[in-house]
Design a binder for these strands. Structure first.
Length: 515
RNA sequence: CGCGGGGUAGUGGAACGGCACCACGUCGGGCUCAUAACCCGAAAGUUCUGGGUUCGAAUCCCAGCCCCGCAACCA
């Protein structure tokens, strides 16, 4: 039985500035999915990275008087550091300036050329002679470039470029979506894409002339690959296309590309057409997530409503932030985040819910059983109810996680926290403890609470990896990072007599910050 | 008539033809193992507006108002 592979990607991020929380949002969601599949025994390859070949990056570096190469190196490190802080478990962090990517892109484009899908044509547009770049009408302010608004630098210019025959793939894309509607999820995003296709596809310019930064067009050094097309190709070069056939054959096609809704056109139309032209199998799915809003605006650099991910990790803890964004927003739709929302959810779910359940359970174990897990029998009605709740949580969690509904998945897992709390209210262990003759009942009641915690450690690991480790450690249970799912994810596996090692509060309440 | 999404208790979400549900917050009660945590109960909605279809509409149709995203060479 060969291990099933699972290859997933995030979009690569455009590195013109420091990372924001919206960047981590996609990383966190994709990481949770990667961990979920690893936990279920799949051979996961998780690719993420940086998009570095844009002309604007070259310009941003020069504007700061910095060498472009040094500039992207510095920013790539910063993004890697953010990923590390948040426990993003990528297998490769690709940079589009990596040598193997550059080589792979050129091989990719040669295939288009061989296939007759590239031709020379003229691109006409508004050109800023100072920036040496084309702009759209909408980019200009009163007909002037925003970088050089003090003088007239804009000219209407024609440039010879290479064009890709996107129009040739109109029918192939229609067929793709007819036969495999699941290619783009969720459905609302797919409908949007179908609308674009129905209105007809036009050929697109895929090269730029006279740039000094970017990937040279194969066999024509006067042209540079237009950065969007170079960027998309990272999904195949990241697993060895053009340079490492064995790895490429092992992981391609991708199981899912996780992206934001602003770039679905590129991933759901251009990308499959590009692959078809290059004679490469299509990925199985593009999964489009929503955005984080703060104060009614999309969280972004241009909206000026950044939440700094490094500061957020200091404030709430990286695990908590992972939980907060996924639980609050869900993943498919847009949702609101703010420090106030984080604070109240932190207290309600993490401190009062999960953290407090761990505290009360381990405290009772220490007090009543000298820090050893008691025997599970006799199993009374309340223990049965908790067990059913646990099994339901496992089922519902997996079903939700499978469809990237992380908010629902977390809600399913946390339903077990509620079930355990209700169980304590019903059985009242603190009362049983007063009657020595009922020691067995007391043990069974606490065992059920303990067992709920153990299962929670495994269920929550994809979202709260560090917390899950701490819970498992406190129960002397196998590490969620390495345990085989079928050997841990069943009720009743916690060994009686196991040592309990209570730790400090997992999520101390944020007392002063609740407005 | 560019395209798409959305307007539901104070807040955020769910239901998408059949008694309008959940969480947080608020109020009342209980408990004391626990991070003033936990448990039970209650109040709170003319489901954006106006028409229509239907035995019955938050849900379907028409018109309008408002918010958000996209609008293909910006990444």
């Amino acid at each position: 039985m060969a291990t099933q592979k699972f290859y997933l990607t995030t979009a690569i991020v455009y590195v013109n500035d420091a990372p924001g929380l919206h960047y981590l949002y996609e990383q966190i969601g994709t990481d949770a999915l990667a961990r979920f599949h690893r936990q279920r025994g799949r051979d996961v390859f998780f690719l993420t990275g940086t998009d570095e070949n844009a002309t604007k990056i070259d310009r941003a570096a020069k504007a700061k008087g910095e060498d472009t190469r040094a500039f992207v190196d510095r920013l790539a490190e910063l993004y890697k550091r953010a990923a590390k802080v948040y426990g993003i478990s990528y297998d490769r962090f690709i940079r589009t300036t990596d040598a193997d990517h550059v080589e792979g892109v050129q091989w990719f484009i040669r295939r288009w050329i061989e296939n007759g899908d590239v031709y020379e044509s003229t691109y006409e547009g508004l050109y800023c002679v100072s920036c040496e770049a084309f702009y759209e009408e909408t980019d200009l302010v009163s007909g002037r470039c925003t970088f050089h608004s003090d003088r007239d630098t804009i000219e209407r210019l024609k440039e010879k470029n290479y064009f890709f025959r996107l129009s040739k793939y109109q029918k192939a894309l229609e067929d793709l979506y007819r036969d495999h509607p699941e290619f783009c999820e969720p459905e609302t995003r797919r409908n949007e894409v179908l609308g674009w296709i129905q209105r007809g596809l036009k050929d697109i310019s895929v090269s730029r002339r006279g740039l000094t930064w970017g990937i040279p067009w194969p066999e024509d050094p006067t042209q540079t690959v237009y950065v969007w097309f170079d960027a998309l190709i990272n999904y195949v070069t990241g697993v060895g296309f053009g340079t490492d056939d064995a790895t490429f054959r092992k992981y391609w096609p991708a199981d899912v590309h996780v992206i934001g809704k602003d770039i679905s056109r590129f991933h759901c139309i251009y990308w499959p057409a590009m692959l078809l032209s290059a004679g490469i199998e299509l990925p199985k799915q593009v999964w489009v997530h929503g955005f984080l809003n703060y104060g009614g605006q999309r969280l972004s650099k241009t909206s000026g409503n950044m939440i700094d991910p490094f500061a957020a990790a200091e404030e709430w803890g990286a695990d908590a932030v992972r939980y907060l964004v996924l639980r609050q927003v869900g993943f498919a739709t847009d949702g609101d985040v703010s420090p106030e929302i984080f604070n109240y959810r932190f207290n309600a779910d993490l401190a009062n819910g999960l953290g407090n359940l761990v505290s009360r359970t381990t405290a009772m174990l220490e007090r009543y059983f000298a820090g050893r897990v008691p025997d599970p029998s006799p199993v009374g009605p309340s223990e049965g109810v908790v067990r059913e709740a646990a099994e339901k949580a496992l089922r519902e969690h997996d079903a939700a996680a499978e469809r990237l509904a992380f908010g629902d998945a977390l809600a399913a897992a946390f339903s077990l926290v509620d079930a355990a709390n209700k169980h304590y209210t019903r059985t009242q262990p603190w009362q049983l403890a007063r009657e020595p003759s009922r020691k067995d009942e007391l043990g069974a009641a606490i065992y059920a609470g303990c067992e709920s915690l153990r299962l929670l450690a495994y269920l929550l690991w994809p979202y709260l990896p560090a917390t899950a480790e701490r819970i498992a450690e406190q129960l002397s249970a196998p590490s969620p990072a390495t345990a085989r799912w079928d050997e841990v994810a069943r009720w009743g596996l916690l060994r009686a007599g196991a040592e309990i090692r209570p730790g400090p509060a997992l999520f101390p309440r944020l007392e002063n910050k609740v407005a």
